[in-house]
Amino acid sequence: MSPTIGVIVFPGSNCEQDALEAVTSLGAKSKLIWHDSFDLGSADAVIIPGGFAHGDYLRPGAIARFSPAMESVFAFARSGRPVLGICNGFQVLTEAGLLPGALQKNSGLKFLCKPVNLTVRTTNSVLTSQTVKGDGLRIPVNHFEGNYTCTEETLEELQDEDRILLTYEDNPNGSMGDIAGICNAERNVVGLMPHPERACHPLLGSTDGQPLLKSFIESSEL
């Protein structure tokens, strides 16, 4: 049985179909979950996709975290099931307190859409289990608020506990420690600013997103 990936849709989300298409192309089943539902149905794993939930008004993710579906995602995550936040989804997860730190405006104060080179820092997570430590991945970023920041203590903790999953080779947004993606202490909740779903088809210039999403799909089968 292939696992079912639930993709949460807030008003203003816009990468939900892309996430769906990418995980389906890798053999998973998938379904959209409207934000005002407490019911995650039969989802074996959850993706919070990119976009501008609630217009990013107030602050990216600040309103979305109060949606009923997020309450269920919280419980889902606490039970050890895999949760992935991509871009706006990463912002939502930090606002919800499921991941530490925050994402502030890019250091260049401009929106930035371009492919970047990432380095895999650990394979010990639901997002990186099928990658090779030290490998380079070419995956696009697409954000205005992707500049990861946290306290010195949190940064140390992330480093000491091997929770920095991916770093930028050439930091595009000013992120602390070149951080592109992290996980929680239990390693089942992951967030990253780059868009792996945009790098899963040979016609789109890179397939480096595949090992990340494959890792995530496989982890939901366990």
Partner: peptide, 17 residues
């Protein structure tokens, strides 16, 4: 023109070849 075009999301919907 990258200073301009990199400010636009050019890839949404996974169509842009």
């Amino acid at each position: 023109h990258e200073w301009i075009t990199s400010q636009y999301d050019s890839q949404l919907f996974l169509n842009t070849v």
